[in-house]
């Protein structure tokens, strides 16, 4: 099946939506526009080469994730793989305030795995169980990490940490 068959306006829209989702997921991992673009494109082309059917969300995310982990390994970075086992913590209240300040900067201060969880949970709407199935960690650990990451964002915002001499276009394409 070709996403771009001639009668496929719907397929084209689906392709764009899925490609953008893949890119945003890659961005949640890499927190770098150019790297996220590369990851998305590599994953997409890999799936196109390997598979005979249409590209769907689950395999796309897994491929992006695997490519990202490979790139970390090549660079000798292992931080991403260590998601600590923690006990389940209570869901936070919906009355908790948001954050003020540079959210992009605050997200950049989080661990990669925590940022990934926030993306999957807040943007993709995955449940803790679905995230657990995707990345192979216990559901309780997922919930705990999500809440911890949000707490960290609030903490950063509360401190009103302004980006210290942050490069002007850190996340822009070179």
């Amino acid at each position: 099946m070709n996403w771009f068959n001639k009668s496929g306006i719907r397929e084209t829209a689906q392709f764009r939506e899925l490609a953008q989702s893949g890119f945003r997921y890659a961005l949640s991992l890499a927190h770098h526009h150019h790297d996220a673009e590369d990851l998305t494109q590599q994953a997409w082309l890999k799936l196109q080469r390997n598979g005979s059917g249409p590209i769907v969300r689950g395999p796309l995310f897994k491929t992006i994730r695997n490519l990202f982990i490979d790139s970390l390994r090549r660079k000798g970075i292992i931080e991403f793989e260590s998601l600590p086992e923690e006990t389940l913590v209570a869901e936070e209240s919906t009355s908790e305030p948001g954050v003020t300040g540079d959210l992009e900067y605050f997200l950049g201060q989080l661990k990669t795995g925590d940022r990934e969880l926030l993306y999957l949970h807040c943007v993709e709407g995955y449940t803790a169980q679905e995230i657990s199935d995707l990345i192979g960690r216990p559901r309780g650990t997922i919930l705990s990490a999500i809440n911890r990451a949000k707490a960290k964002l609030r903490e950063l915002a509360a401190k009103q940490e302004s980006p210290p001499s942050r490069p002007a276009k850190e996340n822009a394409r070179p």
């Binding site: 070709n2 945003r24 998305t40 494109q41 394409r173």
Partner: peptide
């Protein structure tokens, strides 16, 4: 949660450039 909304809005503003989409187009 407000913070969930902020995170969602932040990521939804990020888009893959058209040239990348074209390159991915079979």
């Amino acid at each position: 949660n407000p913070i969930d909304t902020q995170i969602r809005e932040y990521y939804q503003k990020q888009t893959l450039p058209e040239e990348n989409l074209q390159a991915m187009q079979p």
